[in-house]
Amino acid sequence: MAKKELLSIRSIVAVGIGSALFVILGRFGSIPTGIPNTNIETTYALLAVFSLLYGPVAGLLIGLIGHTLKDFIFYGSPWFSWVISSGLVGLIIGLLVAGISIQDGVFGKREIIRFNLAQIVANAIAWFAVAPTLDILIYAEPANKVYTQGLAAGAANIVTVAVIGTLLAVAYAKTRTKQGSLRKLG
């Protein structure tokens, strides 16, 4: 879907709507896991799916814009280290899944594995390394605290995308089936 041009109108609109979705799901779409302070943030499943659909640039921008707006509108002030990491997740997933043509309905076992490897790499880099390091650089917080937080958040996001993101991508691919292959039953 419009991956040829870096910033087609469709990708611009996808960034706008994707960011709005990120804001709404970021605020309303968290499910408690039962482990204290660790939630299933469904908004990262959305981010992964939109990166898959609209490419790395859109993924990067949705992460940056969506996260900034969400923090601003609901919590008063953006938490920059995590904003940057969200953008990074979108970018890396988008880069690593390039070539999967999900809009043609292709999303089988191979694509699922590739998508999940991409999201694991992306989330690991963003939450295990970048976010805590930025926390230390910007806010000079204790290293063991921020790395533990990063580890928890990253793990939760990996699980979220693996389950919800994969289910969404598979379901989306199924909606792209062509009518030609179907016949009415008696």
Partner: peptide, 11 residues
């Protein structure tokens, strides 16, 4: 809708 029962909704 009986004749479409095995169809995907999207079509």
């Amino acid at each position: 809708l009986h004749e479409f029962r095995e169809w995907p909704v999207s079509v």
